[in-house]
Simulated assay, not measured.
Amino acid sequence: MLINVPLCALAYGFAHDPAMLAIGVAALGVFVVVEAKSAAVPLLPLRLLRSPATSSSCSRELVSIPTWYFLTLTMHNLVSTRLC
Rank of each mutant, 00 (worst) to 15 (best):
K37S: 12
W68V: 09
S80I: 10
P6L: 00
E61I: 12
I65T: 06
E35T: 09
N4R: 13
A26P: 06
L48A: 12
S51L: 12
G24N: 01
H16K: 15
N77F: 06
A11I: 00
V25E: 03
L2C: 04
L43E: 06
L73V: 06
A26T: 06
S38K: 15
A9L: 06
G13F: 00
V63K: 03
A39P: 15
L78P: 03
L44C: 09
V33F: 04
A53P: 15
A26M: 09
D17P: 06
L28P: 02
Y69A: 13
L46M: 09
P66E: 00
C58R: 12
S64I: 08
F14D: 09
L10I: 01
A27E: 00
T74I: 11
A53F: 11
A53L: 15
L62R: 02
V32R: 13
E35Y: 02
V5A: 02
G24F: 00
V33M: 11
F14A: 12
M1W: 00
Y69C: 12
L43H: 10
L7G: 01
A11D: 00
P52G: 07
T81C: 11
N77D: 10
M20Y: 05
T74K: 14
C84L: 15
F31P: 07
H16I: 14
W68G: 12
A9C: 08
H16G: 14
A15N: 11
I65A: 11
V34I: 15
Y12T: 08
L49C: 07
E35Q: 13
D17A: 13
T54G: 11
S56A: 15
N77L: 13
G24C: 02
A36Q: 07
Y12I: 10
L21S: 06
H76N: 09
W68S: 10
L49G: 04
L21E: 03
C58S: 13
V5L: 03
G13D: 01
H16A: 15
N77W: 06
V33S: 07
L49T: 02
A26G: 10
D17I: 10
R82M: 10
L71G: 04
R47S: 14
L49I: 03
T74H: 08
G13K: 03
S59K: 15
V34F: 05
N77I: 07
T81I: 14
V63P: 05
V5P: 00
D17E: 10
R60S: 11
M75F: 04
A11S: 02
A9I: 02
Y69F: 07
R60M: 14
R50N: 05
G24V: 01
I3A: 04
V41K: 15
I65E: 05
P45T: 08
T67D: 04
R50S: 06
W68C: 12
L83R: 14
S57E: 09
V33I: 12
F14C: 13
T54L: 15
R60N: 10
L44T: 08
T72V: 06
P42N: 05
L43W: 05
S57Q: 13
L21A: 08
I65M: 10
S59L: 14
R60H: 08
R50A: 08
